[in-house]
Amino acid sequence: MNALRSLFESNKKAAITSGVVIVVLLLLWAVGWLSFLCRGIFGVLIPYAALALFLGGIVYRVVQWAKSPEPFRIPTTCGQQKSLPWIKTNRLDCPETGWGVFGRMALEVLFFRSLFRNTKAELKSGPRLVYGSEKYLWLGALAFHWAFLIIVVRHLRFFTEPIPSFVQLLQSLDGFFQIGVPILYMTDLIILAALTYLFLRRVLDPKMRYISLPTDYFPLVLIIGIVLSGMLMRYTPVKADLVGVKELAVGLMSFHPRIPEGIGILFYLHLLMVCVLIAYFPFSKLMHMAGIFLSPTRNMANNNRKIRHVNPWNYPVKVHTYEEWEEEFKDKLKASGYTLEKE
């Protein structure tokens, strides 16, 4: 009876999930059609608005951050601080100079060094707690971010005329293996694999699922949608007319927008999802792109004791010293037989 009941419940769950998936797909299709029908709005107005929100929003957020004082010197130290001359200093993990900080930040921004140090704790039989290194998140994140960067730079071929040589070089390297026509880009496969891993990581592990919020899933699913629609337009017969796409993109980028005919709904869906992503960017956790440069625990040199740092929100405090207090109550103190310090 109970088994039947749980089967019924799980079936109900599966039905709801697939229902949601179907509704989402139908909605996407409808949105694609809508954006195709209102090409003037979805091809010109929304991209400009999204771009303005993206650039303005990021500048605004960074300026807001820059306005907040950092009361304490709080670099995280992961190595030996500069000490006596015969003790070896760890210049990167406990940077004492600006260049040390630069090196530390560069490794963090380019290679996600702090993710590389991730550890995991596992309870083995015994019970015995075992700590080990955990590199999958680092690998997935690094693969995703670098592939995304290369894909974005590659897309410059749609936005620039003539195409800069570094874009040409990058896409020829990306398509190095010359598989199929149009040539398969390595980064397309890498980003898809990395995104799948990053998504499954949140879904499959109960602990991760528990702490995952809609703001974690939304950008992930959105980027998966962008990647899939882009790949469909390149590798399958629902291809976009690229010359038309470039005309639209270059038009936008030279302030002479025009809407060429012959671009399908898939392209408008792709464009709309990109617009949603960049418009959403400044208001979300995606701001880690700028935030990583402003993380106080990373971008400060550990010269805490070498240089005097004053809390920027310190203001002159009105103090009442002992001498002043003694002076004020001199008579009363004397009358009670108290020996004054002055005397």
């Binding site: 620039t160 005329e161 003539p162 038009g251 980028m253 002479h256």
Partner: peptide, 14 residues
């Protein structure tokens, strides 16, 4: 991030 804008304006081939 505004590279395409000023690149296209500078080249004038848009």
């Amino acid at each position: 991030f505004t590279f395409p804008f000023w690149y296209n304006v500078a080249n004038g081939k848009a």
